[in-house]
Amino acid sequence: MTAHVPQLIDKLAHRRHRERAAAGFGNVNFLKQAAADRLADRLEIVKRHFPLVLDLGAHHGEMTKAALASGKVDRVICADPALGMARYTAADIPSCVVDYDNMMFGEATFDAIMSAFSLHWVNDLPGMLARMRQWLKPDGLLLLSMAGGVSFSGLRSCLAEAESQTAGGLSPRVLPMADIRDLGGLLGRAGFGLPVADSDTLSITWPDPFHMMRELRQMGETNALLGRANHMTRKDTMMQAIKLYQDRFQTDDQRISAEIELITLTAWSPSPDQPKPLKPGSAEVHLGDFLNSDQDNQQD
């Protein structure tokens, strides 16, 4: 099945970046934390209790901690592509190392699955959603937050422009990220019901573009695209990109800013007792009658 999915992401490189980032991740986890906070807010308004929950792409367990603090969750299992990350989850949290592309949990196992700021690193998102639906019990909750397509678009364009100016060509550098409209559709196609998607954009500032790129590396969010250039970026390319970035994205206080779009998604695995739209033609009152009577009232 996965053979037909275009592979964009070098999984081994992404795992390596995450392993390398693991020890220091706690110092740069603000995007992870922002994503986890949004999902915790969503959990807050759900009038349900979730005995067993999966936290996929768990990093140090930030989302797990927030979910347990909500009081709506009994047990959480953390799963991450990197052992280094999993070692930092609290000792009483069961943790495992997984490949996102595999079916490594039993069907109908979890009451909820959540994932904060990780699943933009999945090659086959439709397949991932389909697997998550299988891992969920009926009427189970899916809570996802990931980086959306607007994120780091300024960095993408500056790197592309600098590379074509200095090296005379282009190589993939910034991960293509999902669009909110696509994600809503993907949830439906994976068989989820009652999908809700929204997005908000954070504006983060750094002293300069070097700091920004260094911090992305410390988060394990560096370029792990399969077609990436397999050599260090030329110095003149990097300097040109930094100059372009500084010119275009400087703030009033001489820092630089970048926009990060966080897409938050919730959906439910199907169950017979969920609210569903009625069949077309099954209404007992004619819509026209209703509209006419309303008009009559207004005329009175």
Partner: peptide
């Protein structure tokens, strides 16, 4: 690092619940 040893990662035992949820990938 200090943080990992604080969280007791070194002494962690396999939690039996993992045997209930994991299958062969």
């Amino acid at each position: 690092t200090d943080k990992a040893s604080n969280s007791g990662a070194g002494s962690r035992e396999l939690d039996p619940i993992l045997l209930e949820v994991l299958v062969c990938p």
